[in-house]
Design a binder for these strands. Structure first.
Length: 992
RNA sequence: GCCCAGGUGGCGAAAUUGGUAGACGCACUUGCCUUAGGAGCAAGCGCCGUGAGGCAUGAAGGUUCAAGUCCUUUCCUGGGCACCA
């Protein structure tokens, strides 16, 4: 007999929870908890059984927190921009807009199937224009602050994905996505100065409650490095160059210097050298070699002498400067002072016959011979002794590193300096499926941010989105989208001329500096002045206003009309309102002064008009209305809005009018604001853009005025617990921390770190021990598992498999064991009896279980929490009957893990509110330990037996009992113990 | 090469942080029940040994009355970085 039917109860409760809004974020407690999963990238394959492990864990955790009285924010969303979605779409010939929506729907269905308690009202999707409006807005703040800049430097280019990549996107020098060898390619791109934040990103790791190895990964990635920066005179020219050394301890050994082949200063340095052409050619060769795909630095040593010498500030010796293949232009200063005590310097000097000088002798005398004959390079600074300079002679360089730096710095030869391995963030992709940049360029390629009113810059729906491979995004082919008309406002930002206006009226006129090709351009014509009204129509009783939404041209937002000769503004307003809206009774009309002036070309009347707009407030007496003509209705919608919206419309109206030519009340020849053609930026943002801040949007997902409301942000931030894959350590988690800090600095966020506590998830491997993959055909589909065993079994099993952060192989038979546990749990209900009590041992076990389950969930030790429940079940099953209160508590403990089973049993126990809203069981502190203990008897440190006593016996009492033990008699007998160790309530150890 | 994390039964793993190693689950063995069982129930289950006992936490040393846990050396496995001066 199967005691429960998972299919019925899971569907039933999921439906009920959704109807009752069980998972709506609570807003009633003063204790908040924000627990977050790394949102998924919805691939075409749907979830496999490994994906939801983290989601189940946060689900268990958040359910318990809610039962403990917290307001819990536990949201979910989708990170749907990026290459895989685009590749999938290309392969299957569907628009990514379509395939993404489909994949998201499938993911959501699967997540819901697992009974995860997400508040779907807060779902975010990075590809939703309402979301990426704010991604664009935020990037714009970086642009405006100078943090985001345009660069043309060579970057990593994946020839297969046809896009530039950030350093973080490489894996062993290959494209992380497709495994192709990456080459260096000069490319116009947007870059973000994440290196400005390197120090803080490093230092603030100390305040985070993250797993140590993740912090370590970030530390290594940031790669802070401390050394000395020297300034060296170039011999014979009035120039100085700088070098950077971290291993400066052997500074007296320096005999030459090298410069990166693509160093900016190289051409200038050798401008007077006779064979400079030859040198530049060789340098070029080296650069090409370096930039080619699959370049291996340790296999290639190339260089050429530049013909110039640098003067060593310390030894005053001349250091010949060589171009070399191992110097990096973008690390340190791109020029290195070189010595015998560095492997690469040594190899280079050997190849080109450059003189070397030893100042360091190995402690290990067996290799001293080979070192002194320059047979091998010696670079061990810890096990060696300095012989030069005199002042440090006989000391170990490792021990006096700081002393040497101080000495050199004090002499003024060099300054202390810090370098990072972290590079600025290459923040542009030459692909279609990403956020467009809120940037336009004028004809001189000067960039302008797009005004806030223009956001979002919507990614156009297109038929062709194949990457071009030329270093330009596919968007570059969409002429309609790229070319925009507009002007630059007082804030230096771009404002577009609405396309409706541009098409019907203004393009010809506005394109005033380009009079070729526009027949209707009438600039020489006389300008006619007209007086117009723009009406705000007030509701008779409420604080509401009527605006019109024109489907055709011009003054979107207001009922407008011309004032004819002999008419007052008031007359005109009455007339226009009656005609255009059909309202019949007007209470009051109030004419404001001019609020806007504009010059435009009227396409119907074929004349240039200079129009003065009077703002008129028309107050209706009633809502009586006549039917208006179909024609009017066809071109205009009427909408009631509130006062604020009217006010914002007025600003907009005013702004719109700016593209016309009005200066100090007079029409001028030259426009004050020149409307011109601009080109949109065609790169798109990398996949990491949306995920850098999505966690903030959950807090206030529908806000149209800000990316997050400050007060709400203050309440929910920071994320208390963040759960996801360790593979994000050096990308998402660095980017998001950086992004967050920038907005903290702008005063827009309350804390300078986004994620207080981080927990990584261990992978679930396939039953064969390999990664689950289509390639191996070993994927376990959660749909099948849920079908056969139910969501609760899947959930419980994934939490029971092993330590949460460790990767474990799937085991179907193990899962069947967990399923048995649930069924036995159900059966136990038959033994429930309200009037029964149990013995002390069980009472204690029960209290211990409450404590352990609660503690373990907090520490993400779900496997031991579950095993404790199994122990309790095993024990209770042996009883004749089980007290109702105990079973109820047990159901509550199980409910976070198996929410459907929990809810079903809770209901069957006669409860009418949800178990998930019930109060988490409390344990009785006094009932955690029994009053008897088992004492271990050791003799000479070896276990010889145990005995049971009262808890809390004094040492001599315990010893007396131990002496009674037959093992004592056997092994100690009459001998006199040398020593007796007694650990209270634990053990007796007799040393003989 | 450098930096992390980790090595415990046939398997997944526990171990109150120096105090009874192997909880809990899987698999396996035996028995009961059953027409049957890939169901249920009961018992057993680290290795050697009939037994007393001995040996066991990758290996070797050390500290300690006592080590899976601390120290030293070393070997594997997984992950990250690898031209970063």
């Amino acid at each position: 007999m199967i005691p429960y039917n998972h299919k019925d109860i899971e569907k039933k409760w999921q439906k009920k929870w959704e109807e009752e809004g069980l998972n709506k974020t609570g807003e009633s407690s003063d204790k908040k908890f924000y627990i977050l999963d790394m949102f998924p990238y919805p691939s075409g394959e749907g979830l496999h059984v490994g994906h939801p492990k983290g989601y189940i864990a946060t689900d268990v955790y958040s359910r318990m927190k809610r039962m403990q009285g917290y307001d819990v924010l536990h949201p979910m969303g989708f990170d749907a921009f990026g290459l895989p979605a685009e590749q999938y779409a290309l392969k299957n010939k569907v628009n990514p807009n379509v395939s993404t929506a489909k994949n998201v729907a499938r993911y959501k269905e699967q997540l819901k199937m697992l009974g995860l308690n997400y508040d779907w009202d807060r779902e975010v999707n990075t590809t939703d224009p309402k979301f990426y409006k704010w991604t664009q807005w935020m990037w714009k703040q970086m642009y405006k602050s100078g943090l985001a800049y345009e660069s043309y430097d060579p970057i990593n280019w994946c020839p297969s994905c046809k896009t530039g990549l950030a350093n973080e996107d490489l894996e062993n020098g290959k494209c992380e996505r497709c495994g192709s060898d990456v080459e260096k390619k000069p490319l116009r791109q947007w870059t973000i100065r994440i290196t400005d934040y390197a120090d803080r990103l490093l230092a603030d790791l100390d305040k985070l409650d993250w797993e140590p190895h993740i912090k370590e990964l970030q530390r290594n990635w940031i790669g802070r490095n401390y050394g000395l920066k020297y300034k060296l005179k170039v011999k014979g020219v009035d120039m100085y160059v700088e070098t950077y050394s971290t291993h400066y301890e052997a500074f007296c050994a320096d005999t030459f210097a090298v410069i990166a082949a693509d160093h900016k200063l190289l051409p200038e340095l050798i401008s007077n050298i006779t064979n400079k052409e030859e040198i530049l050619l060789k340098a070029k060769e080296i650069s090409v070699l370096r930039n080619s795909a699959g370049f291996k630095a340790d296999e290639i040593v190339e260089g050429i002498f530049t013909g110039i010498y640098l003067e060593d500030p310390i030894t005053k010796k001349d250091l010949p400067l060589w171009v070399s293949s191992y110097a990096l232009a973008d690390y340190g200063t791109g020029i290195i002072k070189c010595s015998a005590h560095d492997e690469r310097d040594f190899a280079f000097a050997k190849k080109y016959g450059i003189g070397l000088h030893l100042v360091l002798l190995p402690d290990d005398s067996s290799i001293r011979e080979k070192v002194s004959t320059h047979e091998v390079c010696f670079s061990d600074f810890a096990h060696s002794t300095l012989i030069e300079p005199e002042i440090f002679k006989g000391k170990k360089p490792h021990d006096i590193r700081e002393e040497i730096a101080d000495y050199i710095a004090q002499k003024g030869w060099a300054v202390k300096s810090t370098q990072y391995k972290l590079k600025d963030w290459v923040f542009a992709r030459q692909r279609y499926w990403g956020e467009p940049f809120p940037i336009v360029f004028d004809e001189n390629h000067k960039s302008y941010a797009v005004a806030d009113s223009e956001l979002p810059v919507v990614l156009p729906m297109v038929d062709e989105y194949e990457p071009t491979g030329t270093g330009e995004s596919p968007l570059a082919n969409i002429k309609d989208w790229i070319e925009v008309y507009g002007y630059i406002n007082d804030d230096g930002e771009f404002v577009s001329v609405p396309s409706t206006v541009a098409e019907k009226v203004s393009v010809q006129f506005l394109d005033i500096n380009d009079d070729g090709g526009h027949d209707s351009y009438q600039s020489k014509k006389e300008v006619k002045e007209r007086n117009n009204v723009a009406c705000i129509i007030k509701h008779p009783t409420e604080d509401k206003y009527l605006i019109s939404k024109w489907k055709t041209v011009t003054w979107n937002g207001f009922v407008t009309g011309g004032i004819e000769d002999g008419e007052t503004a008031e007359d005109a307003a009455r007339k226009e309102v009656l005609e255009e809206t059909g309202f019949t009774s007007i209470k009051n009309v109030e004419v404001k002064d001019f609020f806007s002036h504009s010059l435009f070309y009227h396409p119907v009347k074929q004349e240039n008009r200079f129009a003065h707009y009077h703002l008129v407030i028309v107050e209706l007496a009633s809502l009586d209305r006549e039917k208006i003509s179909d024609e009017e209705q066809a071109i205009c919608d009427l909408v009631w809005v509130n006062k604020e919206e009217v006010e914002s419309l007025l600003t907009r109206f005013d702004m719109r009018s700016l593209w016309q030519f009005y200066v100090h009340g007079k029409v001028t020849e030259e426009p004050k604001r020149k409307v011109q053609k601009f080109k949109r930026e065609t790169n798109t943002m990398p996949q990491w853009a949306g995920s850098s801040w999505y966690y903030l949007r959950y807090i206030d997902p529908h806000n149209e005025n800000a990316f997050v409301d400050k007060a709400k942000e203050h309440k929910w931030s920071p994320v208390d617990f963040y759960v996801g894959g360790a593979e994000h350590a050096t990308r998402h988690l660095i980017y998001a921390r950086f992004w967050h800090k920038f907005f903290f600095d702008l005063g827009l966020l309350s804390y300078d770190e986004p994620f207080t506590k981080l927990q990584t998830v261990g992978l679930i491997m396939a039953e064969d021990g390999r990664k689950m993959s289509k390639r191996w055909g070993n994927i376990v589909n959660p749909d099948d598992v849920v079908e056969k065993y139910g969501a609760d079994t899947l959930r419980l099993y994934e939490m029971f498999m092993g330590p949460f952060d460790q990767s474990v192989a799937w085991s179907t038979s193990s899962m069947a064991g967990v399923n048995r546990f649930i069924e036995r749990f159900f059966k136990l209900k038959e033994k429930v009896n309200n009037d029964v009590e149990v013995g002390q041992d069980i009472e204690i076990l029960f209290n211990q279980t409450i404590k352990k389950v609660g503690d373990d969930i907090l520490e993400f030790k779900f496997n031991t929490a579950i095993s404790q429940m199994m122990i309790l079940l095993n024990t209770l099953e042996k009883e004749e009957s089980v007290p109702l209160r105990m079973y109820k508590g047990f159901v509550q403990l199980l409910a976070p893990f198996a929410p459907h089973v929990g809810e079903e049993l809770w209901k069957e126990l006669g409860q009418d509110t949800s178990v998930h809203l019930s109060e988490w069981p409390q344990f009785d502190e006094t009932k955690l330990a029994s009053d008897t203990v088992t004492i271990a008897l050791q003799i000479g440190g070896k276990m010889r037996g145990t005995f049971v006593t009262q808890r809390g016996l004094e040492d001599d009492e315990v010893l007396n009992l131990a002496k009674e033990h037959e093992q004592y008699k056997k092994f100690v007998g009459g001998a006199v113990p040398k020593k007796t160790i007694i650990i209270k309530d634990k053990l007796v150890n007799i040393v003989i």
